[in-house]
C-alpha cells in the first residue's frame, strides 16, 4: 500500500502552471525525498496534500483517503511542517504544543508524556518566552515538535533542516532515521546531503513536472560511472604511463597523489587495476569506485 498517490496532479496560478501532471507513489514506511530546484512546485504539492490548496487537475490520495474530500480524516493521521512555521506570538512552546494536543483531543497520561517528550526533543522544555521572540531555529524545532504531537502515520516535512545549526540538523536527521521503521516520511528539501543520509526513495521535480522517481540505491547504481579513484602514497608517474598504454583504459587524469581512471570495461578494470598497483609496488592509500553523489546525479538530470 502507498501512503501517498498522485495521479496527473496539476495546479495553475492563473495562466502559470505551477504543477503539471504529477504522478508519484510514496510507499508506506519509506522515507521519501522530494527534490527540485526553487520554484519547481514542491511546496504546491505539500499544500495540496495537506488540504491547504486545491489541485486544478488530477487527484491525490493520502493514506487511502481522497485529498479534498476526507480532509479531517487525513489531518488526524498526518503531521505537517511548513517551510516557514508560524505560531501565535503570545504563546510559548509548552502552551502551543498543549493547544495542538487539545485540537487532537489528547488527554490524560498519554497527553502529558507526549508533551514532555516533544518539549524535551525540541529542546524547548522550560522555555517560557513567547514564540514571537524565537529564533528561526527555535521556530523550526517547535514546528517539528507540533508535527509529531499526534504520533502521525505520515510526516510531511517541508525543508525541515534549512534553519537549523549542524547539531540541530543532525538531531532532526537522526529523528527521521529513527522514525523510518514505523512511519512514512515525505521530505521536501534542497539539501541533497540530507536526502542521501535518510531517504530510501526519491522523486525529482523540475518546472512543475515530475522527472524521476526511484529507489535511492538503484538510482545511484544506474548512474555509476566507469571511473576508479586511486590514491597513492608516493610518486604516481609510473602508474600513469602504465595505465595510459592499457587497452581498456579510456582516460587517465591525476591530481597530486590521486589518479582518476576512466575505463571502457568496468569488470575487467575492477580485477586488473589492483594487480597493476601491486606489480608496481606502489603504497596504496585508497582505491574506490567513482560512485556519484546524489548532488552529481541531480545536477546531471537537471541539466
Amino acid at each position: 500500500m502507498n501512503a501517498i498517490v498522485t495521479r496527473d496532479l496539476g495546479k495553475r496560478f492563473g495562466s502559470f502552471p505551477a504543477l503539471t501532471g504529477l504522478n508519484i507513489s510514496v510507499p508506506l514506511g519509506s522515507v521519501f525525498g522530494f527534490l527540485g530546484p526553487n520554484g519547481a512546485g514542491k511546496t504546491s504539492v505539500m499544500r495540496i496534500l495537506t488540504g491547504l490548496a486545491r489541485p486544478t487537475s488530477g487527484e491525490a490520495e493520502v493514506l487511502g483517503y481522497k485529498v479534498g474530500l476526507d480532509t479531517l480524516e487525513i489531518s488526524r493521521k498526518i503531521g505537517y511542517l511548513p517551510e516557514n512555521p508560524a505560531f501565535y506570538g503570545w504563546m510559548n512552546a509548552p502552551e502551543y504544543l498543549a493547544f495542538c494536543a487539545d485540537l487532537f483531543g489528547l488527554f490524560g497520561a498519554d497527553r502529558r508524556s507526549r508533551l514532555d517528550y516533544l518539549l524535551d526533543f525540541s529542546g524547548l522544555a522550560g522555555n517560557l518566552r513567547p514564540t514571537a521572540h524565537y529564533s528561526r531555529g527555535m521556530r523550526q524545532r517547535l514546528g517539528i515538535a507540533q508535527a509529531l504531537i499526534n504520533d502521525p502515520e505520515l510526516l510531511l516535512l517541508d525543508e525541515p533542516t534549512s534553519a537549523l545549526d549542524p547539531l540541530g540538523r543532525k538531531e532532526v536527521l537522526d529523528m527521521i532515521a529513527n522514525l523510518s521503521e514505523e512511519k512514512t516520511v515525505f521530505l521536501s528539501t534542497h539539501i541533497l546531503e540530507d536526502v542521501e543520509r535518510v531517504c530510501d526513495r526519491v522523486a525529482m521535480l523540475n518546472k512543475g513536472r515530475g522527472i524521476l522517481e526511484a529507489d535511492l540505491a538503484s538510482l545511484k547504481a544506474d548512474h555509476i560511472e566507469p571511473v576508479f579513484l586511486i590514491d597513492i602514497d608516493g610518486p604516481i608517474d609510473g602508474l600513469i604511463s602504465r595505465l595510459s598504454s592499457t587497452e581498456w583504459v579510456h582516460e587517465v587524469t591525476a591530481s597530486e597523489r590521486t589518479v582518476r581512471v576512466k575505463v571502457s570495461d568496468f569488470d575487467q578494470a575492477q580485477i586488473a587495476l589492483p594487480k597493476i598497483i601491486s606489480e608496481l609496488s606502489l603504497p596504496l592509500r585508497q582505491f574506490k569506485v567513482g560512485t556519484p553523489t546524489l548532488e552529481e546525479i541531480f545536477l546531471r538530470i537537471m541539466a
Binding site: T50, G51, L52, L72, S75, R76, I78, Y80, P82, N84, P85, A86, F87, Y88, C100, L103, F104, G105, G143, Q146, N150
Partner: peptide, 12 residues
Amino acid sequence: TGVLGMVVTKPV
C-alpha cells in the same frame, strides 16, 4: 502570518 495554515492542517 501563516499561523492559521498550521492550525487547519489539524482536525479542525
